[in-house]
Design a protein around this nucleic acid. Structure first.
Lengths: 176, 176, 176, 176
DNA sequence: CGGTAATCGAGACGGTACGTCATGTCTTACA
DNA sequence: TGTAAGACATGACGTACCGTCTCGATTACCG
């Protein structure tokens, strides 16, 4: 899937390579995309690693996760599979829910913890819109992953976090 | 396509609805995705409209375009088709080039003009990385379109532009 | 099976309806067809009933059994299942043997007794080919069951027996 | 199909051997059985051959066709395929109609001509039930094909026709 | 103005993959 | 120990589209 994308892989191929019947694949995964989601969840679990806990600085907390994401995507081309998953989620509401439940929510929730702590420490204005904040920090990453219009590396990650946090402090956005 | 996504539409269906033979479709478009790109380009051309020229303020220049995007996406669900196009571009390099050429580049170039003017006016530090700047402003939009984790409206658009520009001034990023 | 034919019934269905595991069905019957044969044998055993013994007239002896067959097939649509069994026997020699052993032979043997007696009584020429004789009497029945090109009822049964026996006497056939 | 029966042949196999796609087979034949029927019709067309016309004697007319059938079935094992077709017709009424239309009716109609002529010549009582008559002559053939309980050859064919015609004259059956 | 292209609709074709179903074997867990 | 429940590898089912291809019919242009 990493090599050719979700949609170019057939369940028939998966079953053959697994030495199993198609029906067995279907018994456990409702579709190629659910299978891909399961696999991605596994491969990208290091971002959620509890052993790299809160650092005491919001910038550092975010940078640790963003750097880990960058590292993983540099190592292996997850972008193709991700694009396939996101595209599929547009047309399959049930899958969209699963995607959010299994992938998006846990990662967002981890960040919510760090944001809470940052507000407590006074690093961020109280009442800051977390969804807005996380978009500012992480969406440039996804944008570059999907469009490849520029490099995605550690230096860039730090610039993004710096700019985003500066923006959040200079132009605070309260949750509505 | 807007209703069901690119991949759920078959060329056979397109041909039937157009009252033409499949071969005629293939004669003019290399694939469903190219066809979709052509259609999107047409429907989203208003963002490039020259009649809404430079306003004298970078914030306003960006806001005009972002608001237009928001308006278009509120009116009709382009997100589904876009996700399909982006996903397809991941696996088909030739199509990726076409996508950038026909869709991404013209829109980015328009913005480059506004950024140049902003630098001239001193609104932005000289040497600012334009790709970085545009990511900061526009990627939250695509992120919300693809993930639907929050509203996308005019008020939100202004908050994004404010935060992004503030971030860019507070933590300047020079093109490398 | 009577409703839908042997081949449209799955072992899975049988097991489910019996409240048993599939393996248990397989332990006792080698295949759907053997199971069907067992069931048919039971349902069609009345033709072999010893309580309706020799009548003293060949015509009557045959008519009793043919009428019983007709009655059974009028009551319930055994034809479908029979066709399935006969078809299966064409491709599975082992099953063919079982079919003859369990179903065909006992019924033919009963008739042989009546034919012997008829020869003794002088109703039939000595040396008559019994297989030939039984074909003449009973094959129209199977033909109509399988092709449904005409009614199968008591009046018809008597006509068949009359014509067949007349033919056998007028154009005797000696066993070779 | 002759070697392994209709049901043991898969459409996939047919398509592969024909060097065509499955869909092409399905475009022209609704099912394996219809395909088999088409093939049988072709292979068994010699029975309908108009070049072997009326002989002037009913016995001879029937014998010519029955002998041709016997010859064909001796040459190649059509029985297996026939049993499959007959079995399938039991559960698929639409196919049953097709089978009668394409296979049974033309052959029966040919015989009706001969029977008419025989009645005209006085060989058969006027008003004879043709379906009954044809059953008497031909059903032993099908019975032996399906059950293989005895030889099917030219000598046997003549005995069948003799006995059947004798029976029809001795015990006339009027159409109801 | 009539003949020659080009273009088109229609749809057959060889393929690939789909998702479902049933096969017969097997393992597990309970009674 | 025997059995229900059901997982499993297998393989065919019939369907949907793919992208290519051949047909005629219809334009439309040129000689």
């Amino acid at each position: 899937m990493l090599d050719r994308g979700v949609e170019s892989v057939s369940i028939e191929e998966v079953a053959a390579q697994a030495g199993s019947g198609k029906a067995t694949i279907y018994r456990w995964w409702a579709s190629k995309e659910v299978l891909a989601l399961d696999a991605l969840d596994r491969e990208l679990s290091s971002v959620l690693a509890p052993d790299t806990a809160e650092t005491g600085s919001l910038k550092e907390d975010m940078l640790v996760r963003l750097r880990e994401l960058v590292r993983l995507f540099q190592e292996r081309p997850f972008g193709r599979v991700f694009a396939g998953i996101v595209a599929h989620a547009q047309s399959d509401p049930e899958f969209a829910l699963l995607y959010v439940d299994r992938f998006v929510r846990p990662r967002r929730q981890l960040m919510h913890g760090f944001l809470d702590a940052a507000v407590d420490r006074g690093e961020l204005p109280a009442g800051t819109d977390y969804d807005f904040a996380l978009d500012l920090v992480f969406s440039p990453f996804w944008n570059r992953v999907f469009h490849r219009h520029g490099p995605v590396d550690e230096a860039w990650a730090e610039q993004v976090v710096d700019a985003a946090l500066a923006g959040l402090c200079a132009a605070p956005v309260r949750a509505r």
